[in-house]
Amino acid sequence: MSKPKILIITTNHSSYPGANAVGQARLSYGSNTYIIRVPDPVMFPEDFYIRAFEKGIAGIIIMSSGSDCPYEGAYERLSKRIQNVYNIMKQKNININRLKLTTICTVCKEAFLKEISDMEKVVQNVN
């Protein structure tokens, strides 16, 4: 049985370069993490997350650009949408800690690692 998988959604603008900075510093984290990058996570509908969980993803970390977000109103929309996802997760009895919305900057290496280790703790009990 392989380790539970963590999907990390990063932004072209800040957290994807942030993930690279972690690599450049030769820090390490678990290989059960899968980074995808998007212009902005606001593009994903609620069911995208639910489907990902249903397909077998154990945890999802959305690393947004937060206040550095280059798109108008996108962060507010995103956080509202994630609230909706939490509501659906509750209805479906999915532990809401399996989804986390956070902000990671281009050099936030420590914060990046901390988010992963926090999620690792959550997904250990997921199966």
Binding site: P39, D40, P45, E46, P70, Y71, E72
Partner: peptide, 10 residues
């Protein structure tokens, strides 16, 4: 359009 994708989600 700036390409943020907010429209795609709905």
């Amino acid at each position: 359009c700036k390409g943020c994708g907010a429209c795609a989600a709905v």
